[in-house]
Design a protein around this nucleic acid. Sequence first.
RNA 1: GGUGCUAUCGUCUAGGGGUCUAGGACAACGGCCUCUCACGCCGUAAACCGGGGUUCGAAUCCCCGUAGCACUACCA
Length: 528
Amino acid sequence: MERKVRVRFAPSPTGALHIGGVRTALYNYLFARQHGGDMLLRIEDTDSARFVPGAEEYIIEALQWLGIGIDEGIGCQPAEGSTREWEQPKEGLPMQAGPHGPYRQSERREIYHQYVDQLLNSGHAYIAFDTPEELEAKRNEISNFQYDARTRMQMVNSLTLSKEEVDARIARGDKYVVRFKIEPNEDVHVHDLIRGEVVINSSILDDKVLYKSADDLPTYHLANIVDDHLMEVTHVIRGEEWLPSAPLHVLLYRAFGWEETMPQFAHLPLLLKPDGNGKLSKRDGDRLGFPVFPLEFHNQKDGTVSSGYRESGYLPEAVINFLALLGWHAASDQEIFSMQELIEQFSLDRVSKSGAKFDYEKGKWFNHQYLQNYTGAQLLPQFLAAVPAEHKEAVLEKGENVIAHVIDLMKERVNFVPELWDQAAFFFVAPAAYDEKSLKKRWKEESPAHMRELYAILEGINEWNAETLDKIVMEWIAQKEYGVGLVMNAFRITLVGAARGPHIWEITNVLGKEETLRRLQTAIERLA
RNA sequence: GGUGCUAUCGUCUAGGGGUCUAGGACAACGGCCUCUCACGCCGUAAACCGGGGUUCGAAUCCCCGUAGCACUACCA
């Protein structure tokens, strides 16, 4: 029986959504869309101690910005005229919707109780009273201590205690956990869509904690399996860090009797640090000067601020394209993909097995590519946002059409909109100083004299356009045999302040006659 | 330490026994374009971790080693 494809992205609200998590979400989304399936967003907040306020909203906003749509669960917005079940936001938390809710694990306590009991009753789990301190002591005392078939009979649990004692302890309020009872010496096979068959012997697995009475919440493993089953998830696409616990999950499905509908697994390669070794982390971003989060995040818990791709000037389609290729490659050599093309061409069997070092330089290139698709008018608001306050007025004075034109002129030379100001400031603000290197190379002894002559010529031109200026100036240079490069480069320095920028008549067009002459005059005076 | 995963240019990767004197992209370098700087275009340099097998033939399959990574919590 073919089931409808259903995948989920299930982050933990412990801070900003890491860029690796974004890629996981993207791959899930692409897979769902390609198969006409559903993409769910579930919040795994079973660790109350690590909850960070705002993280959930952040995740939703990030996915929205990137165009990763959610069909069911948290952050799912009702469509016009929708007849589906919608739950009202809880205490200002984001809206959730779908037939398998709630989609926040902290709101599913009762559901988990039922399944914990099922495992307890079927003998697949037991209650353990060992305190975290006692376990810690045990680990210090015995190297490689593991709570499993070899050791569980020496511990304080319902296997070693009488029924009365267990009941008494619970009755008097002793904190306990429920542990999964793993039968030793069994080869557990996990079929991974990316890696193939992975076999692990159950003896190396420990009796994982499934539920803790202290906060009346299950742990990841239990909640994950129960939810994926109840939510009819067909494919679990997640990071490679979960591969070692996949056999445990298989065992859990088996214990519940859900093996028939167990989802298929695909463990994605990790995103690694660009330099050195290890997994890409938040600190690498700070250290190497690039964002590791999609959006800027203000952590209310520890007061830190992390930079984001959006605020750094990245276009969402560039981030998507860049991330898609970090671990996946099309059958062809194509590298530029729209979301639609990714949906059409993505496939799990073309996902690489090895970790990918995060190549920030290539990300810049992607942004450059996508930036060229936008017109100056479209980029205008972003450009204006990057203009320093003290120059705002001078820029606005030019009018939107001229500013948009300048952006069109300059956008091909930058990777990001915010960089545009550095490149284009001279259009709006006269050079305060002249670049030493440019001067040395392009400002010659005869330059002041040339510029004085040029000033006189330009002053007499009334038709201030590129064609006329070019014709008259070139004729003058040719007649005097001054050399085009010599004159034009000096002229450029007077207008720009350095030997760079677009074609000179583009500059004079934007500046206008009056400003052009003013800058020429200033330079003649200062560089004579 | 244990277990698992992985291993092609600096980086992301193509490659799934002969078409590989190993292809593409980023970055680097050089050239062209040109009034400058960029963009763009063209080009150069740059890799199959090591050792054994299997085979007529191995980057491709197997084994061993080595290295990297992940996991090894009442975190996810």
